[in-house]
């Protein structure tokens, strides 16, 4: 147990370096199972040379482990000192207190992000539901009018009836309906564009007030023609309602 036998404090502490090659550790089972033959004169007792040899080996073994253990301890202490000098905390992380302030800030930020995502989903849902409902109505209405047109044709065709002609009437009614729907959508889009232009103009005016006439803005005419070129990300959202 004398650590002073191994004073040198080498940083590398592999057991494989401290022990000779091919060395077989002495196991407790081995020690327990060790038997000594009796002496030649049949007296009770063990042959002293065998006992001595075995004890010598055990002593060697214990010595080896003791010194290895001592070197490990020295190395651990050296590393502890090193980390202390470098201000590195080697205590297990869980023993340190969690910073409640940081945790609360993170939790709040996440909850706000979650809320924003939930709102965006709700908004998307209502827009998609509206669009789907509108599309359904357009299709159903077109079909209804196609059937009405076909019926009207059958009534007035009389003897001149032709199935092809009836189908043409149907398709024409559907086409008229779709054109009307597209025209309606275009009007809505125009309205939206006008709104975007108005927002762009207002923004441009505000900008002029702030930074003076648009010398810094290379192409002021680009704003009315290409409203999204103003780079205002929320303009799009404002035009929907």
């Amino acid at each position: 147990m004398n650590t002073s036998n191994y004073p040198d404090d080498r940083p590398n502490l592999g057991l494989e370096q401290a022990l000779p090659r091919g060395w077989q550790p002495l196991s407790p089972e081995h020690i327990r199972g060790q038997r000594f033959r009796e002496t030649a004169l049949a007296r009770r007792g063990y042959r002293p040379d065998e006992v001595e040899a075995f004890l010598a080996r055990m002593a060697e073994e214990v010595q080896r482990w003791t010194s290895t253990h001592a070197r490990d301890l020295a190395e651990i202490n050296r590393l502890r000192g090193f980390f202390r000098n470098q201000n590195i905390d080697t205590e297990p992380a869980r023993q340190r207190a969690f910073s409640n302030e940081a945790i609360n800030i993170l939790a709040t930020a996440q909850q706000q992000a979650d809320q924003l995502i939930a709102d965006a989903k709700t908004h998307a849902r209502s827009m998609q539901t509206d669009a789907r409902g509108q599309a359904e109505r357009v299709v159903v209405e077109a079909r209804r009018e196609a059937e009405a047109a076909a019926h009207a044709y059958r009534v007035r065709a009389g003897q001149q009836y032709s199935a092809d002609r009836e189908q043409v009437e149907r398709l024409a009614a559907i086409a008229r309906n779709i054109l009307a729907a597209v025209a309606g959508a275009t009007t809505q889009l125009d309205g939206a564009s006008a709104q975007i232009r108005a927002v762009g103009d207002a923004f441009s005016a505000e900008l002029t007030k702030l930074v003076g006439p648009p010398a810094a803005i290379p192409a002021p005419t680009a704003i009315p023609d290409h409203p999204t070129a103003t780079g205002i990300p929320h303009v799009h959202g404002q035009t929907h309602r």
Partner: peptide
């Protein structure tokens, strides 16, 4: 759970 995840991600 809000605290749990914030603690997990903070560390």
């Amino acid at each position: 759970p809000a605290y749990f995840y914030a603690a997990l991600f903070a560390r």
